[in-house]
Amino acid sequence: MRLRNKPWAQKLVKEHPEAILNEPNIDEKINWEERFADFSKPLAIEIGSGKGQFITTLAKQHPEMNFIGVELQTTAAGMILRTKLEEGIDNLQLMCADAANIAYYLPENSVDVLYLNFSDPWPKTRHEKRRLTYKSFLDKYRKVLKPEGHLEFKTDNRGLFEYSLVSLNNYGMKFEHVSVDLHHDEDEIAARNVETEYEHKFAEKGNPIYCLHASFVEE
């Protein structure tokens, strides 16, 4: 969902290049060691961070890790940035960028966990290649994830969930966890779940939340 443009968000993004990368050049290597106090910590990245409830909450809960939130919309990115600055979340960096370029922005085998939360389902067949679980995106995730790293995906859209199961399976990925009603599960995954803004809204309406965890199988 596209947010209404907020001039203050664009201004904030421009004023804080130390905290957010705004449309970085794919030909220029990003020095992540300078952007984090300790880049040797485990690294998690969320693609499509929305207003940031998930990634900011997780970063506060886990100071022993580093986090990167990637969001295409400047207004949404500005909202996350405001939270980061107001709450002093030092282990979180942001990118206002296209996820299609993720493999250019991060070192190979540097990410421990990659989150895809409530991604645009792009329901029309002609838009299949835009879905964040399409095989071309999986190619990129495989490059940046560590061999022992994994992907965590949540959605309220059954069509996208079923598509993603097939896409990841055809890619040869290994499923570690699959749920068709996360909020009514009684397991460790459900217990540690951190909600996104959309997730909270959909769950309140009684919609089931679909979830999967999967990893790439080394050749």
Rank of each mutant, 00 (worst) to 15 (best):
I45K: 04
S49P: 07
S49Y: 04
K51F: 07
G52H: 02
I55W: 03
T57Q: 05
T57H: 03
T57M: 00
L58F: 03
Q61M: 12
Q61S: 10
P63D: 07
N66D: 00
N66P: 03
F67S: 02
I68C: 01
I68L: 09
G69R: 04
E71V: 15
T74F: 00
T74D: 01
A76Q: 11
G78V: 12
G78N: 05
I80Y: 06
I80W: 04
T83C: 01
T83I: 05
E87F: 03
G88M: 10
G88E: 14
L92G: 05
C96F: 02
C96S: 09
A97K: 11
N101K: 14
Y105T: 06
P107G: 07
P107E: 12
P107S: 13
E108I: 02
V111Q: 00
V111T: 14
L116M: 13
F118T: 07
S119A: 15
P121E: 11
R126H: 14
E128H: 09
R131V: 11
L132A: 02
L132F: 13
L132E: 02
Y134H: 15
S136Y: 02
V144K: 07
P147I: 14
P147F: 09
P147E: 13
P147V: 14
H150R: 12
H150A: 06
E152R: 15
F153L: 15
T155F: 09
R158C: 05
L160I: 11
L160C: 10
E162L: 15
S164Q: 08
N169I: 00
N169G: 15
